[in-house]
Design a protein around this nucleic acid. Structure first.
Length: 305
DNA sequence: TTGTGTTTTATTGCCTCC
DNA sequence: GGAGGCAATAAAACACAA
């Protein structure tokens, strides 16, 4: 303990013993007896008849302080916890307002038999605990949202791989059809059987012209998501262009190819994969300043405090 | 009982605001 | 410059497994 360090007890403060181990000086602060902030700073050697040469427990009441037993030489210097009642009242007060104006601090201290400084310290520590809890909750919500997105992403990537393979397969068959007249009748049936991803992908190819002749997609790795509902595919498809790296995602989906998605307020669906940006973000507890734009951008969502 | 991790109470130093 | 808030930290109290 540092020489001259001030230690608080309930309703009193004690000047710690010097390093030499000399007698410890007790200062009776009393309820409201000390100003808040910089408590007892600047009062070393305070000459007060209330200063006694002894040790006592923390958090004794004013009445207890008057009892002889608390002046027992055997009493250890201890940091006592607040009683359940004191904590309960402090918690109630904190719920009402987590900042402590001087009048309320004084009144609470008086009612609880504590030093105003103790009340202030308790609120300070309580705010710190509250802040930590908020951070943990924010982390949990973000992680849940990320996990959901990552799961969707995985499904989309799998679909994408499957669709590429189908495009290559169909391309090969179409090329074979051109050179083999006998094969013309077969593709009609096959196209019908081909799942809608292929049609959507090809529609995207038509619309955006971003698929090269060998079936690969130019411009990074846009994930093609069919925006049309049902089996009747429109010629427009939503695309999902983003960067997933190091566990993070940045980017937007939508763009000029988004049609039914916008009508649905951001719904982008695909077989075996559903994705709805506002739903995911709202589920994570975020809000958007502009509901009209909420489904278009990832960047404008924020936590609702 | 004891070692260890967690929680609570309190201090210190720095910063901002008035 | 004083008051009060916050982050970092110390240390006592507490919980709990071995």
């Amino acid at each position: 303990m540092d020489p001259g360090r001030v230690v608080f007890h309930s309703g009193l403060a004690r000047l710690a013993a010097p390093a030499s181990g000399g007698p410890q000086m007790l200062l009776f602060g009393g309820s409201g007896g000390a100003s808040s902030g910089g408590f007892f700073r600047g009062v070393p050697g305070m000459d007060d008849e209330r200063v006694i040469n002894n040790k006592r427990p923390f958090f004794t009441t004013h009445e207890e302080l008057l009892e002889e037993e608390y002046y027992d030489d055997q009493a250890q210097e201890k940091k006592r916890r607040l009683t359940a009642d004191q904590v309960q009242m402090l918690e109630r007060s904190f719920e009402e307002e987590n900042k402590l104006e001087p009048e309320r601090k004084t009144e609470l201290a008086r009612r609880l038999g504590m030093a105003p400084r103790q009340v202030a310290v308790w609120f300070q520590n309580r705010r710190a605990r509250w802040k930590n809890k908020q951070l943990e909750q924010d982390f949990d919500r973000l992680k849940a949202a990320y996990d959901a997105l990552a799961a969707d992403h995985h499904v989309v990537l799998s679909d994408n791989d499957r669709l590429r393979a189908q495009v290559i397969s169909l391309t090969d068959k179409l090329e074979g059809k051109e050179t083999t007249p006998s094969a013309i009748a077969a593709p009609a049936q096959e196209v019908d059987q081909t799942d809608k991803h292929t049609a959507g992908l090809m529609a995207t190819r038509q619309h955006k012209g971003d698929i090269t002749g060998n079936g690969t997609i130019d411009g990074g790795s846009p994930v093609v998501i069919d925006a049309a509902e049902g089996t009747n595919h429109s010629s427009e498809s939503a695309y999902f262009a983003g960067d997933y790296d190091n566990g993070g995602f940045t980017g937007q989906y939508g763009g000029g190819a988004l049609s039914s998605s916008e009508e649905d307020g951001g719904a982008v669906s695909d077989e075996g994969c559903s994705f709805h940006l506002p739903d995911v973000m709202l589920a994570a507890g975020l809000v958007h300043h502009d509901p009209e734009e909420a489904h278009l951008s990832w960047n404008s969502w924020f936590w609702n405090e």
